[in-house]
């Protein structure tokens, strides 16, 4: 029986803040950020698909985005990441 791939690395996680709750909150915020991005990306793909084809949503999984929209999304993603750190990057 193959063991599932482990989720966490061995050893203690490094912490950086006086209150360990802050370290945990950083993780939560980053996970929310990732999920927020994933959803936003998916929505963009869906919108593009519906806009052009008005077809079944089942085809969305394999849908390839046009290069200009991918580039726009890439730029929006970089902007989103920058905004995430506005509280500490000034």
């Amino acid at each position: 029986m193959t063991e599932p791939l482990p989720r966490a690395a061995k050893g203690d996680r490094p912490t950086f803040f006086d209150d360990p709750a802050v370290d945990a909150l950083v993780t939560m915020v980053l996970e929310l950020a990732r999920e927020q991005w994933v959803l936003r990306h998916r929505l963009a793909v869906l919108e593009d698909y519906v806009e052009r084809k008005e077809g079944s949503l089942g085809a969305v999984e394999a849908h390839a985005m046009p290069a200009d929209k991918t580039a726009a999304l890439d730029a929006q993603r970089a902007e989103f990441v920058t905004r995430l750190f506005r509280a500490v990057e000034r």
Binding site: L30, A33, R34, W37, V38, H41, R42, V45, V60, E61, H63, D74, R77, A78, V81, T82, F85
Partner: peptide, 18 residues
């Protein structure tokens, strides 16, 4: 990877670049 997994990977790459 699924569409969402791909977007998740791209997010992590962008985060690391930042």
């Amino acid at each position: 990877p699924t569409l969402d997994e791909r977007a998740g990977m791209d997010f992590v790459s962008a985060l690391r670049s930042h």
